[in-house]
Write a protein that binds this DNA or RNA. Structure first.
Length: 602
DNA sequence: CCCCCCCC
Protein backbone atom coordinates (compact mmCIF):
# COMPACT_ATOMS: atom_id res chain seq x y z
CA UNK A 1 0.00 0.00 0.00
CA UNK A 2 1.32 3.42 -0.99
CA UNK A 3 0.16 6.48 0.90
CA UNK A 4 -0.22 9.76 -0.93
CA UNK A 5 2.12 12.59 0.04
CA UNK A 6 0.48 15.52 1.77
CA UNK A 7 0.81 18.99 0.21
CA UNK A 8 3.15 20.08 3.00
CA UNK A 9 2.68 23.68 4.15
CA UNK A 10 -0.21 24.35 1.83
CA UNK A 11 -2.72 25.23 4.57
CA UNK A 12 -0.85 28.44 5.43
CA UNK A 13 -1.03 29.51 1.77
CA UNK A 14 -4.72 28.64 1.37
CA UNK A 15 -5.67 30.39 4.58
CA UNK A 16 -3.88 33.51 3.43
CA UNK A 17 -5.97 33.69 0.32
CA UNK A 18 -3.95 31.82 -2.27
CA UNK A 19 -5.81 29.54 -4.64
CA UNK A 20 -4.08 26.16 -4.65
CA UNK A 21 -5.21 23.43 -6.99
CA UNK A 22 -6.20 20.06 -5.50
CA UNK A 23 -4.25 20.07 -2.22
CA UNK A 24 -3.80 16.71 -0.50
CA UNK A 25 -4.50 16.83 3.25
CA UNK A 26 -5.11 14.56 6.19
CA UNK A 27 -8.22 14.57 8.38
CA UNK A 28 -7.22 14.42 12.05
CA UNK A 29 -10.67 14.75 13.57
CA UNK A 30 -14.25 15.41 12.56
CA UNK A 31 -17.16 16.41 14.74
CA UNK A 32 -20.70 17.63 14.45
CA UNK A 33 -21.06 21.31 15.35
CA UNK A 34 -24.79 21.57 14.98
CA UNK A 35 -26.79 18.88 16.63
CA UNK A 36 -30.06 19.80 14.94
CA UNK A 37 -30.77 17.00 12.51
CA UNK A 38 -32.29 19.38 9.99
CA UNK A 39 -29.20 21.54 9.69
CA UNK A 40 -26.30 19.30 10.57
CA UNK A 41 -22.81 20.55 9.92
CA UNK A 42 -19.39 19.00 10.40
CA UNK A 43 -16.20 20.70 11.49
CA UNK A 44 -12.90 19.13 10.56
CA UNK A 45 -9.42 19.30 11.96
CA UNK A 46 -7.32 19.00 8.84
CA UNK A 47 -3.54 18.86 8.38
CA UNK A 48 -0.98 19.22 5.62
CA UNK A 49 1.68 17.52 7.74
CA UNK A 50 3.21 20.86 8.72
CA UNK A 51 0.20 22.98 9.64
CA UNK A 52 -3.28 22.14 10.79
CA UNK A 53 -6.50 24.07 10.47
CA UNK A 54 -9.27 23.53 12.97
CA UNK A 55 -11.55 25.99 11.21
CA UNK A 56 -12.54 23.77 8.32
CA UNK A 57 -16.10 22.79 7.52
CA UNK A 58 -17.81 20.34 5.25
CA UNK A 59 -20.42 21.79 2.91
CA UNK A 60 -23.65 19.99 3.72
CA UNK A 61 -23.72 17.99 0.49
CA UNK A 62 -20.64 16.13 1.80
CA UNK A 63 -22.36 15.14 5.06
CA UNK A 64 -23.27 11.88 3.41
CA UNK A 65 -19.56 10.94 3.17
CA UNK A 66 -19.30 11.26 6.93
CA UNK A 67 -22.49 9.24 7.36
CA UNK A 68 -20.91 6.54 5.22
CA UNK A 69 -17.82 6.50 7.41
CA UNK A 70 -15.54 7.71 4.61
CA UNK A 71 -14.04 10.61 6.55
CA UNK A 72 -12.76 9.03 9.70
CA UNK A 73 -9.58 9.93 11.54
CA UNK A 74 -6.34 9.85 9.47
CA UNK A 75 -8.10 9.71 6.09
CA UNK A 76 -6.03 11.36 3.32
CA UNK A 77 -8.18 13.47 1.03
CA UNK A 78 -7.75 15.68 -1.99
CA UNK A 79 -9.76 18.92 -1.95
CA UNK A 80 -11.33 19.29 -5.38
CA UNK A 81 -13.36 22.39 -4.54
CA UNK A 82 -13.18 24.75 -1.59
CA UNK A 83 -13.49 28.39 -0.58
CA UNK A 84 -12.33 30.39 2.39
CA UNK A 85 -14.60 32.85 4.11
CA UNK A 86 -14.59 35.13 7.10
CA UNK A 87 -16.92 34.30 9.95
CA UNK A 88 -17.36 35.55 13.45
CA UNK A 89 -18.25 38.71 15.29
CA UNK A 90 -18.47 41.78 13.08
CA UNK A 91 -17.02 39.87 10.19
CA UNK A 92 -13.61 40.34 11.69
CA UNK A 93 -13.18 36.90 13.11
CA UNK A 94 -11.73 33.70 11.77
CA UNK A 95 -11.28 32.70 8.21
CA UNK A 96 -12.80 29.30 7.68
CA UNK A 97 -12.14 26.74 4.99
CA UNK A 98 -15.32 25.33 3.48
CA UNK A 99 -14.85 22.13 1.53
CA UNK A 100 -17.50 21.39 -1.07
CA UNK A 101 -15.89 18.61 -3.09
CA UNK A 102 -13.26 16.13 -2.04
CA UNK A 103 -11.86 12.75 -2.99
CA UNK A 104 -10.67 10.16 -0.50
CA UNK A 105 -7.12 9.21 -1.48
CA UNK A 106 -6.34 6.79 1.36
CA UNK A 107 -8.96 5.65 3.89
CA UNK A 108 -8.14 6.31 7.54
CA UNK A 109 -7.98 2.58 8.27
CA UNK A 110 -5.11 2.27 5.77
CA UNK A 111 -3.23 5.31 7.03
CA UNK A 112 -3.62 4.48 10.72
CA UNK A 113 -1.67 7.47 12.11
CA UNK A 114 -1.08 11.20 12.05
CA UNK A 115 1.50 12.30 9.49
CA UNK A 116 4.10 14.78 10.72
CA UNK A 117 3.77 17.08 13.73
CA UNK A 118 1.51 19.84 12.42
CA UNK A 119 1.14 23.15 14.26
CA UNK A 120 -1.45 25.85 13.80
CA UNK A 121 -1.03 27.71 10.49
CA UNK A 122 -1.36 31.03 12.28
CA UNK A 123 2.27 30.53 13.30
CA UNK A 124 3.35 30.02 9.71
CA UNK A 125 6.68 31.50 8.75
CA UNK A 126 6.67 34.19 6.04
CA UNK A 127 8.32 32.00 3.42
CA UNK A 128 5.39 29.60 3.60
CA UNK A 129 2.89 32.26 2.67
CA UNK A 130 1.63 33.21 -0.74
CA UNK A 131 4.25 35.10 -2.71
CA UNK A 132 1.65 37.19 -4.52
CA UNK A 133 1.15 40.60 -2.90
CA UNK A 134 -2.47 40.72 -4.03
CA UNK A 135 -3.22 37.49 -2.30
CA UNK A 136 -1.52 38.67 0.85
CA UNK A 137 -3.55 41.85 0.98
CA UNK A 138 -6.68 39.77 0.48
CA UNK A 139 -5.98 38.12 3.75
CA UNK A 140 -6.59 41.26 5.72
CA UNK A 141 -9.92 41.27 7.47
CA UNK A 142 -11.23 44.35 5.73
CA UNK A 143 -14.44 44.71 7.66
CA UNK A 144 -12.50 45.25 10.88
CA UNK A 145 -10.89 48.37 9.46
CA UNK A 146 -14.13 50.03 8.46
CA UNK A 147 -15.70 52.45 10.92
CA UNK A 148 -18.71 50.86 12.60
CA UNK A 149 -21.06 53.59 11.37
CA UNK A 150 -20.00 53.09 7.80
CA UNK A 151 -22.34 53.22 4.87
CA UNK A 152 -23.77 49.88 3.79
CA UNK A 153 -22.34 50.16 0.32
CA UNK A 154 -18.87 50.72 1.69
CA UNK A 155 -19.04 47.46 3.60
CA UNK A 156 -20.52 45.81 0.57
CA UNK A 157 -17.93 47.16 -1.84
CA UNK A 158 -14.98 46.39 0.34
CA UNK A 159 -16.22 42.84 0.81
CA UNK A 160 -16.81 42.42 -2.90
CA UNK A 161 -13.45 43.89 -3.84
CA UNK A 162 -11.57 41.81 -1.35
CA UNK A 163 -13.42 38.66 -2.33
CA UNK A 164 -14.26 38.15 1.30
CA UNK A 165 -17.86 37.18 1.63
CA UNK A 166 -19.36 35.09 4.37
CA UNK A 167 -20.66 31.58 3.99
CA UNK A 168 -24.41 31.26 4.39
CA UNK A 169 -23.85 28.53 6.95
CA UNK A 170 -22.10 31.03 9.24
CA UNK A 171 -25.04 33.45 9.42
CA UNK A 172 -26.76 33.77 12.77
CA UNK A 173 -28.85 36.34 14.66
CA UNK A 174 -25.83 37.11 16.85
CA UNK A 175 -23.88 39.18 14.39
CA UNK A 176 -25.03 41.13 11.37
CA UNK A 177 -21.91 42.52 9.73
CA UNK A 178 -21.72 40.17 6.84
CA UNK A 179 -21.98 39.99 3.08
CA UNK A 180 -23.04 36.79 1.40
CA UNK A 181 -22.64 35.88 -2.23
CA UNK A 182 -25.48 33.60 -3.13
CA UNK A 183 -27.43 32.18 -6.02
CA UNK A 184 -31.22 32.52 -6.04
CA UNK A 185 -32.60 29.02 -6.47
CA UNK A 186 -36.28 29.91 -6.28
CA UNK A 187 -38.45 32.97 -5.96
CA UNK A 188 -42.11 33.15 -5.01
CA UNK A 189 -44.71 35.42 -6.54
CA UNK A 190 -45.88 38.47 -4.62
CA UNK A 191 -48.44 37.42 -2.05
CA UNK A 192 -50.69 39.61 0.05
CA UNK A 193 -52.10 38.80 3.44
CA UNK A 194 -54.66 40.23 5.77
CA UNK A 195 -55.23 38.93 9.26
CA UNK A 196 -55.80 40.03 12.84
CA UNK A 197 -52.25 41.36 13.05
CA UNK A 198 -52.53 43.51 9.97
CA UNK A 199 -52.06 43.19 6.27
CA UNK A 200 -49.31 43.52 3.70
CA UNK A 201 -47.48 41.83 0.91
CA UNK A 202 -44.34 39.82 0.59
CA UNK A 203 -42.25 37.58 -1.58
CA UNK A 204 -39.65 35.06 -0.57
CA UNK A 205 -36.62 33.48 -2.17
CA UNK A 206 -34.22 30.64 -1.49
CA UNK A 207 -30.49 31.43 -1.56
CA UNK A 208 -27.59 29.03 -1.92
CA UNK A 209 -23.79 29.12 -1.80
CA UNK A 210 -21.00 26.58 -1.33
CA UNK A 211 -21.69 26.26 2.36
CA UNK A 212 -25.46 25.96 2.46
CA UNK A 213 -28.83 27.52 1.81
CA UNK A 214 -31.28 29.91 3.46
CA UNK A 215 -34.77 31.25 2.92
CA UNK A 216 -35.15 35.05 2.68
CA UNK A 217 -38.36 37.06 2.73
CA UNK A 218 -39.01 40.66 1.69
CA UNK A 219 -42.10 42.35 3.15
CA UNK A 220 -44.02 45.45 2.07
CA UNK A 221 -41.60 48.22 0.94
CA UNK A 222 -38.79 45.69 0.51
CA UNK A 223 -41.12 43.52 -1.52
CA UNK A 224 -41.65 46.36 -4.00
CA UNK A 225 -38.03 47.44 -3.90
CA UNK A 226 -36.44 44.06 -4.62
CA UNK A 227 -39.01 41.96 -6.44
CA UNK A 228 -37.89 42.82 -9.97
CA UNK A 229 -34.18 42.77 -9.18
CA UNK A 230 -34.22 39.25 -7.79
CA UNK A 231 -34.10 36.64 -10.55
CA UNK A 232 -33.89 32.89 -10.26
CA UNK A 233 -30.43 31.53 -11.12
CA UNK A 234 -28.67 34.89 -10.74
CA UNK A 235 -25.97 35.47 -8.12
CA UNK A 236 -26.16 38.44 -5.72
CA UNK A 237 -24.17 40.06 -2.97
CA UNK A 238 -26.57 40.53 -0.07
CA UNK A 239 -25.97 42.19 3.29
CA UNK A 240 -27.84 43.59 6.28
CA UNK A 241 -30.78 41.32 6.69
CA UNK A 242 -32.42 40.34 9.92
CA UNK A 243 -31.96 36.73 11.01
CA UNK A 244 -34.37 34.67 13.04
CA UNK A 245 -34.90 31.02 13.76
CA UNK A 246 -36.55 29.25 10.83
CA UNK A 247 -39.90 27.67 11.40
CA UNK A 248 -39.09 24.19 10.15
CA UNK A 249 -42.76 23.48 9.71
CA UNK A 250 -42.71 25.63 6.59
CA UNK A 251 -39.32 25.01 5.11
CA UNK A 252 -37.30 22.04 4.02
CA UNK A 253 -34.11 24.07 3.65
CA UNK A 254 -31.05 22.96 5.55
CA UNK A 255 -30.70 25.98 7.82
CA UNK A 256 -31.70 26.69 11.40
CA UNK A 257 -32.32 30.34 10.49
CA UNK A 258 -34.10 32.36 7.88
CA UNK A 259 -33.69 35.99 6.97
CA UNK A 260 -35.89 39.01 6.45
CA UNK A 261 -34.97 41.95 4.26
CA UNK A 262 -34.95 45.23 6.17
CA UNK A 263 -34.66 48.91 5.27
CA UNK A 264 -30.88 48.48 5.63
CA UNK A 265 -30.65 45.54 3.26
CA UNK A 266 -28.34 45.94 0.29
CA UNK A 267 -28.60 43.65 -2.73
CA UNK A 268 -26.22 43.82 -5.65
CA UNK A 269 -26.24 41.64 -8.74
CA UNK A 270 -22.97 39.76 -9.27
CA UNK A 271 -22.54 39.71 -13.02
CA UNK A 272 -19.22 37.96 -13.38
CA UNK A 273 -19.95 34.45 -12.21
CA UNK A 274 -18.11 32.47 -14.87
CA UNK A 275 -15.39 31.04 -12.65
CA UNK A 276 -17.46 31.27 -9.54
CA UNK A 277 -17.70 28.67 -6.84
CA UNK A 278 -21.37 29.46 -6.20
CA UNK A 279 -22.95 26.15 -7.15
CA UNK A 280 -25.51 25.73 -9.88
CA UNK A 281 -28.94 24.52 -8.90
CA UNK A 282 -28.77 20.75 -8.67
CA UNK A 283 -31.57 18.60 -9.96
CA UNK A 284 -32.05 15.09 -8.69
CA UNK A 285 -34.14 14.03 -11.65
CA UNK A 286 -36.23 10.92 -11.22
CA UNK A 287 -38.08 9.10 -14.00
CA UNK A 288 -41.84 9.67 -13.80
CA UNK A 289 -42.38 5.92 -13.34
CA UNK A 290 -40.43 6.07 -10.07
CA UNK A 291 -42.92 8.49 -8.52
CA UNK A 292 -45.38 5.58 -8.16
CA UNK A 293 -43.15 4.04 -5.55
CA UNK A 294 -42.34 7.22 -3.62
CA UNK A 295 -43.93 8.40 -0.39
CA UNK A 296 -46.85 10.79 -0.34
CA UNK A 297 -45.72 14.42 0.20
CA UNK A 298 -42.13 13.61 -0.86
CA UNK A 299 -40.29 16.23 -2.92
CA UNK A 300 -39.65 15.34 -6.56
CA UNK A 301 -37.36 16.78 -9.23
CA UNK A 302 -38.28 15.53 -12.66
CA UNK A 303 -38.37 16.45 -16.33
CA UNK A 304 -40.98 15.61 -18.93
CA UNK A 305 -42.83 16.80 -21.99
CA UNK A 306 -46.07 18.65 -21.40
CA UNK A 307 -48.26 16.35 -23.47
CA UNK A 308 -51.60 17.76 -22.35
CA UNK A 309 -52.72 21.10 -20.89
CA UNK A 310 -55.80 21.51 -18.75
CA UNK A 311 -57.99 24.60 -18.53
CA UNK A 312 -57.19 27.40 -16.13
CA UNK A 313 -59.38 26.87 -13.08
CA UNK A 314 -60.36 29.26 -10.31
CA UNK A 315 -61.81 28.15 -7.01
CA UNK A 316 -62.27 29.33 -3.46
CA UNK A 317 -60.64 27.17 -0.81
CA UNK A 318 -63.32 25.83 1.46
CA UNK A 319 -61.44 26.34 4.70
CA UNK A 320 -59.73 29.68 4.10
CA UNK A 321 -62.10 31.33 1.63
CA UNK A 322 -59.10 32.34 -0.43
CA UNK A 323 -59.31 32.28 -4.18
CA UNK A 324 -56.81 30.18 -6.08
CA UNK A 325 -55.99 29.74 -9.71
CA UNK A 326 -54.62 26.45 -10.91
CA UNK A 327 -53.95 24.48 -14.05
CA UNK A 328 -53.25 20.77 -14.36
CA UNK A 329 -50.87 19.64 -17.05
CA UNK A 330 -49.70 16.14 -17.96
CA UNK A 331 -46.01 15.30 -18.21
CA UNK A 332 -44.68 12.25 -20.03
CA UNK A 333 -41.14 10.91 -20.17
CA UNK A 334 -39.04 8.05 -21.50
CA UNK A 335 -40.08 5.76 -18.66
CA UNK A 336 -43.28 5.58 -20.73
CA UNK A 337 -45.17 7.10 -17.87
CA UNK A 338 -47.42 10.08 -17.45
CA UNK A 339 -48.11 12.18 -14.38
CA UNK A 340 -50.31 15.14 -13.61
CA UNK A 341 -48.63 18.34 -12.45
CA UNK A 342 -50.58 21.20 -10.87
CA UNK A 343 -49.43 24.77 -11.53
CA UNK A 344 -50.63 27.65 -9.33
CA UNK A 345 -51.16 31.39 -9.65
CA UNK A 346 -49.16 33.16 -12.36
CA UNK A 347 -47.51 29.91 -13.44
CA UNK A 348 -51.00 28.56 -14.16
CA UNK A 349 -52.32 31.74 -15.80
CA UNK A 350 -49.37 32.31 -18.10
CA UNK A 351 -48.71 28.71 -19.08
CA UNK A 352 -48.83 27.93 -22.79
CA UNK A 353 -48.67 24.19 -23.25
CA UNK A 354 -49.90 23.97 -26.80
CA UNK A 355 -46.35 23.81 -28.11
CA UNK A 356 -45.77 20.81 -25.80
CA UNK A 357 -42.66 22.25 -24.12
CA UNK A 358 -40.14 20.39 -21.98
CA UNK A 359 -40.92 21.03 -18.31
CA UNK A 360 -38.24 20.76 -15.64
CA UNK A 361 -39.39 20.93 -12.03
CA UNK A 362 -37.56 20.87 -8.72
CA UNK A 363 -39.10 20.38 -5.30
CA UNK A 364 -42.62 19.51 -6.42
CA UNK A 365 -44.69 17.67 -3.81
CA UNK A 366 -46.40 14.33 -4.31
CA UNK A 367 -50.12 14.34 -3.66
CA UNK A 368 -51.70 10.95 -3.39
CA UNK A 369 -55.34 10.34 -4.04
CA UNK A 370 -57.04 6.99 -4.34
CA UNK A 371 -53.83 5.26 -5.24
CA UNK A 372 -52.83 7.75 -7.94
CA UNK A 373 -49.98 10.17 -7.44
CA UNK A 374 -49.72 13.65 -8.88
CA UNK A 375 -47.28 16.51 -8.47
CA UNK A 376 -47.95 20.02 -7.28
CA UNK A 377 -45.71 23.03 -7.73
CA UNK A 378 -45.71 24.61 -4.27
CA UNK A 379 -43.72 27.18 -2.37
CA UNK A 380 -40.01 26.75 -2.99
CA UNK A 381 -40.61 24.64 -6.10
CA UNK A 382 -39.03 25.66 -9.37
CA UNK A 383 -40.38 25.15 -12.88
CA UNK A 384 -38.32 25.72 -16.01
CA UNK A 385 -39.81 25.68 -19.47
CA UNK A 386 -37.59 24.30 -22.24
CA UNK A 387 -34.38 24.39 -20.16
CA UNK A 388 -31.14 24.15 -22.13
CA UNK A 389 -29.84 20.92 -20.63
CA UNK A 390 -28.99 17.59 -22.30
CA UNK A 391 -31.93 15.75 -20.68
CA UNK A 392 -34.31 18.29 -22.22
CA UNK A 393 -32.91 17.88 -25.72
CA UNK A 394 -33.02 14.11 -25.41
CA UNK A 395 -36.68 14.22 -24.36
CA UNK A 396 -37.49 16.60 -27.19
CA UNK A 397 -36.01 14.21 -29.74
CA UNK A 398 -37.77 11.24 -28.18
CA UNK A 399 -41.15 12.96 -28.12
CA UNK A 400 -40.92 14.51 -31.59
CA UNK A 401 -40.26 11.04 -32.97
CA UNK A 402 -43.44 9.66 -31.50
CA UNK A 403 -41.98 8.64 -28.15
CA UNK A 404 -44.94 9.84 -26.13
CA UNK A 405 -47.62 8.28 -28.32
CA UNK A 406 -48.28 5.10 -26.40
CA UNK A 407 -47.70 6.10 -22.81
CA UNK A 408 -49.40 3.48 -20.73
CA UNK A 409 -48.24 3.88 -17.15
CA UNK A 410 -50.57 6.48 -15.70
CA UNK A 411 -48.97 7.38 -12.39
CA UNK A 412 -51.85 9.72 -11.52
CA UNK A 413 -54.57 7.19 -12.35
CA UNK A 414 -56.81 6.52 -9.39
CA UNK A 415 -57.43 3.01 -8.29
CA UNK A 416 -60.29 3.86 -5.96
CA UNK A 417 -60.30 2.91 -2.31
CA UNK A 418 -58.94 5.03 0.45
CA UNK A 419 -56.74 8.05 0.29
CA UNK A 420 -53.74 5.99 1.34
CA UNK A 421 -51.35 4.01 -0.77
CA UNK A 422 -52.40 0.59 -1.95
CA UNK A 423 -51.70 -2.16 0.55
CA UNK A 424 -49.33 -4.96 -0.37
CA UNK A 425 -50.88 -8.41 -0.21
CA UNK A 426 -50.29 -11.84 -1.60
CA UNK A 427 -52.89 -13.48 -3.83
CA UNK A 428 -53.45 -16.15 -1.18
CA UNK A 429 -54.08 -13.56 1.54
CA UNK A 430 -56.51 -11.68 -0.70
CA UNK A 431 -58.60 -14.89 -0.77
CA UNK A 432 -58.06 -15.74 2.88
CA UNK A 433 -59.15 -12.28 4.02
CA UNK A 434 -62.28 -12.32 1.85
CA UNK A 435 -61.30 -9.19 -0.02
CA UNK A 436 -64.10 -7.87 -2.20
CA UNK A 437 -66.96 -9.16 -0.06
CA UNK A 438 -67.96 -5.69 1.18
CA UNK A 439 -70.10 -3.06 -0.54
CA UNK A 440 -67.12 -1.25 -1.91
CA UNK A 441 -64.31 -2.89 -3.84
CA UNK A 442 -61.00 -3.56 -2.10
CA UNK A 443 -57.65 -2.72 -3.61
CA UNK A 444 -54.24 -4.27 -3.13
CA UNK A 445 -50.98 -4.65 -4.96
CA UNK A 446 -48.68 -7.58 -5.48
CA UNK A 447 -45.68 -8.62 -7.50
CA UNK A 448 -46.71 -11.40 -9.85
CA UNK A 449 -45.68 -13.21 -13.02
CA UNK A 450 -47.92 -13.69 -16.05
CA UNK A 451 -48.61 -17.42 -16.63
CA UNK A 452 -51.29 -17.63 -19.31
CA UNK A 453 -52.78 -14.92 -21.55
CA UNK A 454 -56.00 -15.74 -23.36
CA UNK A 455 -56.26 -14.61 -26.96
CA UNK A 456 -59.95 -15.54 -27.17
CA UNK A 457 -62.23 -12.54 -26.67
CA UNK A 458 -59.21 -10.36 -25.97
CA UNK A 459 -60.81 -7.44 -27.82
CA UNK A 460 -64.15 -6.05 -28.87
CA UNK A 461 -65.25 -3.54 -31.45
CA UNK A 462 -66.23 -0.34 -29.67
CA UNK A 463 -67.95 2.91 -30.55
CA UNK A 464 -65.46 5.21 -32.33
CA UNK A 465 -66.56 8.28 -30.33
CA UNK A 466 -63.66 9.28 -28.10
CA UNK A 467 -65.66 9.35 -24.89
CA UNK A 468 -67.69 6.21 -25.55
CA UNK A 469 -66.36 2.67 -25.29
CA UNK A 470 -69.62 0.79 -25.82
CA UNK A 471 -69.51 -2.34 -27.90
CA UNK A 472 -71.00 -1.71 -31.38
CA UNK A 473 -73.39 -3.92 -33.29
CA UNK A 474 -72.22 -4.92 -36.78
CA UNK A 475 -75.11 -3.93 -39.07
CA UNK A 476 -73.41 -5.32 -42.16
CA UNK A 477 -72.49 -3.13 -45.17
CA UNK A 478 -69.60 -1.73 -43.10
CA UNK A 479 -72.03 -0.01 -40.73
CA UNK A 480 -71.67 -0.20 -36.96
CA UNK A 481 -74.35 0.88 -34.50
CA UNK A 482 -73.64 2.26 -31.06
CA UNK A 483 -76.73 1.84 -28.90
CA UNK A 484 -75.44 4.22 -26.27
CA UNK A 485 -74.81 7.06 -28.75
CA UNK A 486 -77.77 5.89 -30.86
CA UNK A 487 -75.76 6.40 -34.03
CA UNK A 488 -74.42 4.54 -37.04
CA UNK A 489 -70.70 4.72 -37.82
CA UNK A 490 -68.67 3.52 -40.81
CA UNK A 491 -65.88 2.53 -38.44
CA UNK A 492 -65.16 1.32 -34.92
CA UNK A 493 -62.21 1.19 -32.59
CA UNK A 494 -60.68 -1.87 -31.02
CA UNK A 495 -60.79 -2.09 -27.22
CA UNK A 496 -58.84 -4.67 -25.27
CA UNK A 497 -60.16 -6.89 -22.50
CA UNK A 498 -57.34 -9.22 -21.61
CA UNK A 499 -57.89 -12.18 -19.32
CA UNK A 500 -54.81 -13.79 -17.91
CA UNK A 501 -53.60 -15.96 -15.09
CA UNK A 502 -50.99 -14.37 -12.86
CA UNK A 503 -49.15 -15.90 -9.96
CA UNK A 504 -47.11 -14.79 -6.99
CA UNK A 505 -45.25 -17.08 -4.60
CA UNK A 506 -48.45 -18.05 -2.82
CA UNK A 507 -51.06 -18.74 -5.49
CA UNK A 508 -52.49 -18.08 -8.97
CA UNK A 509 -55.51 -16.02 -10.01
CA UNK A 510 -57.31 -15.12 -13.22
CA UNK A 511 -57.47 -11.35 -13.66
CA UNK A 512 -59.01 -9.01 -16.27
CA UNK A 513 -57.31 -5.97 -17.75
CA UNK A 514 -59.05 -3.25 -19.69
CA UNK A 515 -57.82 -1.28 -22.65
CA UNK A 516 -55.02 0.96 -21.36
CA UNK A 517 -53.51 -1.67 -19.10
CA UNK A 518 -53.80 -4.23 -21.91
CA UNK A 519 -51.92 -1.91 -24.28
CA UNK A 520 -49.23 -1.39 -21.70
CA UNK A 521 -48.83 -5.11 -21.01
CA UNK A 522 -48.78 -6.13 -24.67
CA UNK A 523 -46.66 -3.18 -25.75
CA UNK A 524 -48.96 -2.51 -28.69
CA UNK A 525 -51.95 -0.28 -29.30
CA UNK A 526 -55.40 -1.84 -29.16
CA UNK A 527 -55.65 -1.16 -32.89
CA UNK A 528 -52.51 -3.19 -33.57
CA UNK A 529 -53.60 -6.01 -31.29
CA UNK A 530 -57.13 -6.11 -32.73
CA UNK A 531 -55.86 -6.17 -36.32
CA UNK A 532 -53.36 -8.91 -35.52
CA UNK A 533 -56.01 -11.06 -33.83
CA UNK A 534 -58.38 -10.62 -36.78
CA UNK A 535 -55.94 -10.83 -39.68
CA UNK A 536 -52.52 -12.06 -38.62
CA UNK A 537 -52.53 -14.97 -36.14
CA UNK A 538 -48.74 -15.33 -36.26
CA UNK A 539 -48.28 -11.68 -35.29
CA UNK A 540 -50.92 -12.06 -32.57
CA UNK A 541 -49.15 -15.12 -31.20
CA UNK A 542 -45.91 -13.18 -31.13
CA UNK A 543 -47.51 -10.23 -29.30
CA UNK A 544 -49.24 -12.39 -26.71
CA UNK A 545 -46.43 -14.84 -26.03
CA UNK A 546 -44.05 -11.96 -25.33
CA UNK A 547 -46.10 -11.25 -22.21
CA UNK A 548 -45.71 -14.76 -20.79
CA UNK A 549 -43.47 -15.13 -17.75
CA UNK A 550 -42.94 -11.39 -17.35
CA UNK A 551 -43.17 -9.96 -13.82
CA UNK A 552 -44.90 -6.74 -12.84
CA UNK A 553 -46.33 -4.90 -9.89
CA UNK A 554 -50.09 -5.32 -10.26
CA UNK A 555 -52.56 -3.01 -8.59
CA UNK A 556 -55.74 -5.04 -8.36
CA UNK A 557 -59.36 -4.22 -7.71
CA UNK A 558 -61.16 -6.99 -5.91
CA UNK A 559 -64.95 -7.30 -5.81
CA UNK A 560 -67.54 -10.03 -5.51
CA UNK A 561 -69.83 -10.07 -8.54
CA UNK A 562 -73.07 -11.94 -8.89
CA UNK A 563 -73.77 -13.90 -12.10
CA UNK A 564 -77.21 -15.44 -11.88
CA UNK A 565 -77.14 -17.47 -8.69
CA UNK A 566 -73.34 -17.59 -8.60
CA UNK A 567 -71.11 -15.18 -6.76
CA UNK A 568 -67.63 -14.89 -8.10
CA UNK A 569 -64.74 -12.96 -6.66
CA UNK A 570 -63.34 -10.92 -9.52
CA UNK A 571 -59.92 -9.33 -9.85
CA UNK A 572 -59.38 -6.42 -12.25
CA UNK A 573 -55.97 -4.95 -13.00
CA UNK A 574 -56.16 -1.24 -12.21
CA UNK A 575 -52.61 -0.52 -13.19
CA UNK A 576 -49.41 -2.32 -13.84
CA UNK A 577 -45.89 -1.03 -13.28
CA UNK A 578 -42.37 -2.30 -13.81
CA UNK A 579 -40.84 -3.64 -10.62
CA UNK A 580 -39.00 -0.89 -8.80
CA UNK A 581 -36.63 -3.22 -6.98
CA UNK A 582 -35.53 -0.59 -4.50
CA UNK A 583 -39.10 0.11 -3.43
CA UNK A 584 -40.13 -3.55 -3.55
CA UNK A 585 -37.17 -4.52 -1.39
CA UNK A 586 -38.20 -1.83 1.07
CA UNK A 587 -41.57 -3.51 1.30
CA UNK A 588 -39.96 -6.94 1.78
CA UNK A 589 -37.63 -5.64 4.49
CA UNK A 590 -40.58 -4.08 6.28
CA UNK A 591 -42.42 -7.42 6.13
CA UNK A 592 -39.35 -9.20 7.46
CA UNK A 593 -39.07 -6.72 10.32
CA UNK A 594 -42.70 -7.23 11.22
CA UNK A 595 -42.31 -11.00 11.09
CA UNK A 596 -39.10 -11.21 13.08
CA UNK A 597 -38.88 -7.98 15.07
CA UNK A 598 -35.26 -7.80 13.89
CA UNK A 599 -34.02 -4.44 12.71
CA UNK A 600 -37.01 -2.49 13.92
CA UNK A 601 -36.18 0.88 15.37
CA UNK A 602 -38.04 0.45 18.67
C1' DC B 1 -45.19 40.47 9.64
C1' DC B 2 -46.02 34.83 5.66
C1' DC B 3 -46.38 29.81 6.16
C1' DC B 4 -52.35 29.61 1.74
C1' DC B 5 -52.06 25.58 -2.92
C1' DC B 6 -58.32 23.24 -3.10
C1' DC B 7 -61.35 19.52 -5.07
C1' DC B 8 -61.82 14.38 -6.62
Amino acid sequence: MVLASLSTGVIARIMHGEVVDAPVLQILAIKKINSAADSERYRILISDGKYFNSYAMLASQLNVMQHNGELEEFTIVQLDKYVTSLVGKDGAGKRVLIISELTVVNPGAEVKSKIGEPVTYENAAKQDLAPKPAATSNSKPVAKKEPIHNNNNVVMNSSINSGMTHPISSLSPYQNKWVIKARVTSKSGIRTWSNARGEGKLFSMDLMDESGEIRATAFKEQCDKFYDLIQVDSVYYISKCQLKPANKQYSSLNNAYEMTFSGETVVQLCEDTDDDPIPEIKYNLVPISDVSGMENKAAVDTIGICKEVGELQSFVARTTNKEFKKRDITLVDMSNSAISLTLWGDDAVNFDGHVQPVILVKGTRINEFNGGKSLSLGGGSIMKINPDIPEAHKLRGWFDNGGGDSVANMVSARTGGGSFSTEWMTLKDARARNLGSGDKPDYFQCKAVVHIVKQENAFYRACPQSDCNKKVVDEGNDQFRCEKCNALFPNFKYRLLINMSIGDWTSNRWVSSFNEVGEQLLGHTSQEVGEALENDPAKAEQIFSALNFTSHIFKLRCKNEVYGDMTRNKLTVQSVAPINHKEYNKHLLKELQELTGIGSSN
